[in-house]
Design a protein around this nucleic acid. Structure first.
Length: 478
RNA sequence: CGGUGUGUAGCGCAGUCUGGUAGCGCACUUGCCUUGGGAGCAAGGGGUCGCAGGUUCAAAUCCUGCCACACCGACCA
């Protein structure tokens, strides 16, 4: 049977969302649960998230951020304290009304995010300017009852990290907002994913924030995914929860707060950016299995010889890589090739009697779907190169595709019939954004940081013709 | 919340129009045989046909009501 005759994955070009669902299922990353909108993440999918988490943890720790844990329940009245915040989240709140067999007088929201859960306590912890900055991070699950869930990208319950920090003044706080964005940018770099970083428009910013920064990612179908956010909250929450400190000047001041987060939506981005018609393609940094060894044998004699060769190989390589030898006996080599390709394993080593005798391996790389023969002596060196090469290649492919799909337009009429992202000079008038959404389903995604201090290419807004302020990126989004 | 569609074995589906013993492919179990791109043969196991009610000698199939889920939109950090 030919390679393409048993495909259970829809082609990207035929139906991208269907392709995405197929990959999530076939690669055994996750499946839908019996609870609407909630997913079951399987070991292979969770491992990817854990590897992402490990890298981000490393970076946050290196930056001096400490971890903390607050309860999953938030008194509803706390959430209602900040007006913009509650209006932003009210429609998607899950609320506990009964517990211990009784109706609760004070209803408990399941946290959709933890500003309202943490800052009352922050107020107790902070007395003096000497207690600042306070920089804490929480790895947690949150619940947002979204109208339309989507695997990893928008499940009702999801895992993330949320950083919540307090500074003495605006300058320090804003500097950190930028810094966290650059950490997210480097994390996505770690995933071989190019990001478009900058500021959100007024209507797209976080409910309760003064300013929201974002790392936007382009999926292969030209839609946008918000990969991470970093918010400057100003003193909005500080005023509500009384986060104040006594300054060196003997006066009481409000703390300037930030919050920043990244969720396992990043796993969804990983799939949508790198995946192809054969399934996942994982960058080595976060591949649960970096090298898979597939033994090939014909009879008992070659079997023991080949397995011994594989076992030595596995042992020496596993000092440096996450290695797995697929010793299942009931499956043919061809089956295993496809099995691990769908799962995106970057490098596969095929080992039969031929290789064992010649002290070689046949090496297959998933990013290019090509094979090469490598002498055992040269394998460590070749693998070391390849891990870098594969990462770079995946990044370059993603970067090229993204750049190619950003179209400069001077008038919104040019959107007609085109897909992808659009760069345009914009007045930043919320009304025009609403019109754009209604007419083309597009929203503003980001004002690139590099464009912040630059005059727009066109002095007139591409929608209203009124004076433009900056060049923004617009897109449909997940 | 609007539009469309789907609920039959773990997964994918046929059967419903025209009522009459619950089927197919994949997966699973056992055995043999095989292994360089999703092997083959044989024998097996697995079902309140989404739920409730109704019509009928008889309902997966017809009628009524309900529920759930998916997709497209609206919504959404």
């Amino acid at each position: 049977m030919g390679k393409n005759e048993k495909k259970t994955i829809t082609k990207q070009a035929v139906d991208f969302p269907a392709w995405y669902q197929d990959v999530v299922r076939e690669a055994e990353l996750a499946e839908v649960s019996e609870v609407r909108g909630c997913g079951i993440v399987r070991p292979y999918g969770l491992k990817i998230w854990e590897l992402i988490k490990a890298e981000l943890s490393r970076q946050l720790e290196a930056d001096g951020v400490e971890n903390v844990y607050f309860p999953i329940f938030v008194p509803l009245e706390n959430l209602e304290a900040e007006q913009d915040h509650v209006e932003g989240f009210a429609p998607e709140l899950a609320v506990v009304t009964h517990a211990g067999g009784e109706e609760l007088t004070n209803k408990l929201a399941i946290r959709p995010t933890s500003e309202a859960a943490m800052y009352k306590t922050y107020a107790k912890w902070i007395q003096s300017y000497k207690d600042l900055p306070l920089r804490l991070n929480q790895w947690a699950n949150v619940v947002r009852w979204e109208k339309r869930p989507r695997a990893f990208l928008r499940w009702s319950e999801f895992l993330w990290q949320e950083g919540h920090t307090v500074f003495a003044n605006e300058t320090e706080a804003r500097a950190e907002v930028e810094k966290m964005l650059s950490i997210y940018q480097s994390l996505y770099q770690f995933l071989a994913i190019p990001t478009f970083t900058g500021r959100k428009s007024e209507s797209e910013k976080f409910a309760g924030a003064v300013m929201t920064l974002t790392a936007e990612v382009m999926a292969r179908d030209g839609k946008a995914i918000q990969g991470a956010t970093s918010h400057y909250l100003g003193t909005n929450f500080a005023k509500v929860f009384n986060v104040t400190y006594l300054g060196a000047d003997g006066e009481t001041h409000f703390g300037h707060q930030n919050s920043w987060g990244l969720s396992w939506r990043s796993v969804g981005a990983l799939i949508m950016v790198h995946g192809d018609d054969n399934g996942l393609r994982l960058p080595p940094n976060i591949a649960p299995v970096q090298v898979v060894i597939v033994p090939i044998y014909k009879d008992d004699a070659t079997k023991s010889e080949v397995l011994a060769y594989c076992s030595d190989l596995n042992q020496s390589l596993s000092k440096q890589y996450r290695v797995k030898t697929d010793v299942r006996d009931a499956q043919t080599p061809g089956f295993k090739f496809n099995y691990w390709e769908v799962r995106g394993v970057p490098v596969r080593l095929e080992v039969g009697a031929r290789e064992a005798a010649a002290k070689k391996v046949t090496l297959f790389r998933r990013d290019t779907d090509t094979k090469e023969e490598v002498d055992l002596d040269h394998l460590p060196e070749r693998l070391q190169q390849l891990m870098v090469e594969i990462h770079d290649n995946l990044y370059q492919q993603a970067k090229a595709l993204a750049d190619q799909n950003i179209h400069r337009i001077e008038s919104w009429d040019e959107i007609e019939g085109q897909t992808g992202w659009f760069e345009a000079s914009w007045s930043e008038d919320p009304l025009t954004e609403k019109q754009l959404k209604e007419k083309y389903g597009l929203v503003s995604r980001v004002l690139l940081s590099t464009q912040e201090e630059v005059a727009p290419k066109n002095s007139k807004c591409f929608i209203s013709g009124k004076p433009a302020k900056h060049d923004w990126l617009f897109a449909k989004c997940y």
